[in-house]
C-alpha cells in the first residue's frame, strides 16, 4: 500500500506524433537525483479517530439547528405582509427541512458511532423545529386557516323551518 506510486508504471501515448508508438515502462527510467519514492506526506489519517466520527456526526445532526438563527433573522426581515419576497422566503423555509426529511436515509448513512440514534433524533427534531418555524411564520402572516372566517365559505345556509307568505290584502 505504501509502495503505491504516484507515477504511472506504464503509459501508451496515442496522441504522440510520429510512428514510434511504443509502450514505455516507466520503471526503466532512472529516477532523477533527489527523487524519493512515495509522497512526502504520509497518509496518517487512516488511523481513524473515533471521536472525530462522533464530532462529524454531530455536525450533520446539528446542521438544521444551526440554521435556526439565520431563519429567525430572515423571518424578521421578511415582515408580515403578503408579497412575493416574503412568500418566496417562507417557501424556502418550508422546502429545506422537507427535503432534508425526505433525504433522511442518505443522511443517516453518514451518521455513525455509538451516539448515532440520539444524533438522528436531534437531526429530525431540528428539521421539525425548522418546519414549525415556517408554519409559525405562515401563521403570523395569516396564511393558516385557523380562524372561523377561513371556513365561512363552506358553511351551509341555514335550513328554513317555517314558510310564510302574504302581504297587503288584494
Amino acid at each position: 500500500m505504501a509502495a503505491r506510486s504516484k507515477k504511472h508504471k506504464w503509459s501508451i501515448d496515442f496522441a504522440g506524433s510520429g510512428r514510434l508508438r511504443s509502450v514505455v515502462a516507466s520503471s526503466d527510467i532512472v529516477s532523477p537525483v533527489g527523487f524519493m519514492e512515495g509522497s512526502v506526506v504520509s497518509d496518517r489519517t487512516k488511523d481513524v479517530d473515533p471521536n472525530l466520527i462522533v464530532k462529524r456526526s454531530w455536525d450533520i445532526a446539528l446542521a438544521p439547528v444551526k440554521q435556526v438563527p439565520m431563519n429567525m433573522f430572515i423571518m424578521w426581515m421578511a415582515g408580515n405582509s403578503i408579497s412575493i419576497f416574503p412568500i418566496m422566503m417562507v417557501g424556502m423555509m418550508f422546502i429545506r427541512p422537507i427535503y432534508a426529511i425526505l433525504a433522511l436515509q442518505k443522511t443517516f448513512k453518514d451518521i455513525e458511532g455509538e451516539q448515532a440514534p440520539f444524533q438522528k433524533l436531534v437531526f429530525i427534531l431540528g428539521n421539525v423545529f425548522c418546519l414549525a418555524m415556517a408554519v409559525y411564520k405562515c401563521h403570523v402572516m395569516g396564511l393558516l386557516p385557523t380562524h372561523t372566517s377561513d371556513w365561512l365559505a363552506f358553511v351551509q345556509p341555514q335550513e328554513r323551518m317555517e314558510w310564510s307568505g302574504g302581504g297587503v290584502i288584494l
Binding site: M161, E162, W163, S164, G165, G166, G167, V168, I169
Partner: peptide, 13 residues
C-alpha cells in the same frame, strides 16, 4: 306534510 310550518300574513290598509 308541510302544514304545521305554513304561515300567511295579511295587511289591512
Amino acid at each position: 306534510s308541510s302544514l304545521p310550518s305554513l304561515y300567511l300574513h295579511l295587511t289591512d290598509l
